[in-house]
Design a binder for these strands. Structure first.
Lengths: 187, 187
DNA sequence: AATATTATATGCATAACGCATACATATACG
DNA sequence: CGTATATGTATGCGTTATGCATATAATATT
């Protein structure tokens, strides 16, 4: 038994190839535009309620998930230098959103949200979800399902390290993100 | 003729509603995670070949599309203050990627890419597309088409102003982005 | 007990911005 | 024509966010 070849007119073959490449590039490019536009919007929305860098806002979310997290671990999730992360903690403390408590180990610091920090965290998450929900306006329920599955597929390609998984999810609303495609990222 | 009502067990109805909301939230949240992860990756990739802020890299792309663009217009696309944009131009000139020429109007400056700038622009675009292509690994051709259409739909929701359209497309590879969902954004 | 490791913090430098302002050119108007 | 206003660009200065080098404190190792 041998392979079956199908004769295709070269002109048609070329146009098929072109269409294939064009389609690829279109998806590729659109994906980039989407990411950029949404991140811009997210930044603007968050800045509106918390006038600090994006990573500082992310820290609020992460500390809320992992009360008592150390600067060292937070550093890895935020992908900052250690001094950079210490300064993030300084800013959050200064803003009254976070307090440093003593960790189990005498060296470590346990970061905890204050009451104000918890409220801010809720605001940040709501604002993020509202923005994203608005972006999805006009997408039907069925389309949402399809889109979610495709995004989930793309997301599995992205993390390069174990910590990268936590990093991707650093702004997520874990309670509503059932069936997270980035598996095993509980810190 | 009156409306037809279908009896649904309240428990089932509630679970349907929950599933509906959960599905919505899942899509919403995943969309946010995707945007964040891709933007992170993009930033890292671009920094690898051009160690300047994201907006500075974007300026290279935009100036390439609109040779002779003024600081004033560039400012709006990058969403920076005027002084901020002047400094972007300073940095690019310092790096030998851009040169200031005199515009038609004696007040305006015409920004042009140098040869080095044109090469850098190609590198930046290639790097971006390669990254995005890698993110799409494992997505079939059919799925790509579906994804592209859904992204296109979402993208139409995003720009709030006329200039916002240009802004969203500031990193795009226009040559391969056939059928741009952000209509009428030629500068 | 001395040394190495780990966690945190600080001094200092730099990049990337914005606001206020200065400067140059163009336009409008009396 | 000349003056006032608008427009485009540039600069001084301050602030935020960040990294590198280094200091300090606590723990672990030998």
């Amino acid at each position: 038994m041998h392979n079956a070849y199908i004769y295709v007119n070269p002109i048609i073959a070329f146009s098929m190839l072109s269409a294939y490449i064009a389609d690829m590039d279109r998806t590729t490019n659109l994906l980039g535009a989407l990411a950029l536009a949404l991140t811009d919007k997210m930044g603007a929305e968050l800045k509106d309620i918390f006038d600090r860098s994006g990573e500082t806002a992310a820290a609020v979310i992460v500390i809320g998930y992992v009360p008592g997290i150390s600067v060292q671990i937070l550093r890895q999730v935020l992908d900052l230098s250690h001094p950079g992360t210490v300064r993030v903690a300084d800013r959050l403390e200064e803003d009254g959103l976070v307090e440093r408590r003593s960790g189990l180990d005498g060296r470590t610091v346990a970061l905890h949200l204050t009451r104000k920090g918890t409220i801010m965290r809720k605001k940040l998450m709501m604002r993020r979800l509202d923005m994203l929900e608005a972006a999805l306006e006009g997408i039907t329920t069925n389309e949402r399902g399809v889109l979610a599955d495709l995004i989930a597929k793309v997301l599995t390609n992205l993390p390069e390290t174990e910590m990268g998984k936590h990093r991707i999810c650093r702004f997520c609303n874990v309670q509503t993100c059932s069936d997270c495609p980035i598996r095993g990222h509980a810190i």
